[in-house]
Design a protein around this nucleic acid. Sequence first.
DNA 1: CTGTATCCTTAGGGATACTG
DNA 2: CAGTATCCCTAAGGATACAG
Lengths: 137, 137
Amino acid sequence: MPHPAKDCRRSDCPVSFTLDLLGDKWTLLVVRDILFKDKKFYGDFLSSEEGIATNILADRLEKLDQTGILTWEKDPNHGSKYIYHLTEKGLDLLPMLLEMILWGAKHDPQTAAPRKFIQAVKKNREGVIREIREKLR
Amino acid sequence: MPHPAKDCRRSDCPVSFTLDLLGDKWTLLVVRDILFKDKKFYGDFLSSEEGIATNILADRLEKLDQTGILTWEKDPNHGSKYIYHLTEKGLDLLPMLLEMILWGAKHDPQTAAPRKFIQAVKKNREGVIREIREKLR
DNA sequence: CTGTATCCTTAGGGATACTG
DNA sequence: CAGTATCCCTAAGGATACAG
């Protein structure tokens, strides 16, 4: 059952549903790290510049797993314990994240979003989506 | 300065920026109500099925105003005190909200999203965006 | 190092009372 | 009715210690 139980969903509205799963300040940063920064290890996420706390990170990884957005597997090289990656459901978040990036880049005067990437998304949204999905598959 | 002060932004990443402003379980529900449900009065928002508390609503309206996403004006008919509406910056959230709807509708088995609307968005995203923007202007 | 668990403070937010 | 303010509790989450 990769979705909230009856008593933790506030309504059947899709916006509300999405917010029930992802509506906080940290969860989507983990998704962002995987989608756009090729991160896959626990320490990768920990070292992101926003400075997520280790308990928060562990909690979010577990919740993302429970909701079927992310999974992990043992690291064969054993440099790390696990390799985290998105499921199809998680990869489906890419368009939403891209819109968040466009909105943030447009309205944040001190954004650090790379101009080239923003232009690429504006010019060829579907292409960028396909490319990133391919890379992560 | 319609954006977070230096000490409340976690990084210059556009995703992080967007989450700093909108990353909680309630704020985007108000935006949704305006964009898709033609709500404009305090009581409209209060009566949404998710059941936002009055103090939370007041707080979010104020924050959305501080960040330049929403404004209000006196209601000339005085049925209500104020009429709330989105700024251009707020209307710019529409594409992101649409992606949230698509994702929620796809992955929530008990979604209440109208099939026709979902199809319309998939088929003619830009058209839907233009139409809704026009209506709210 | 990777990941887990504990402690403890603050902030989010529900219930409800209050004002115009 | 529209909107504000208070009370109070729970949960989010920062710091940090601990285990493999």
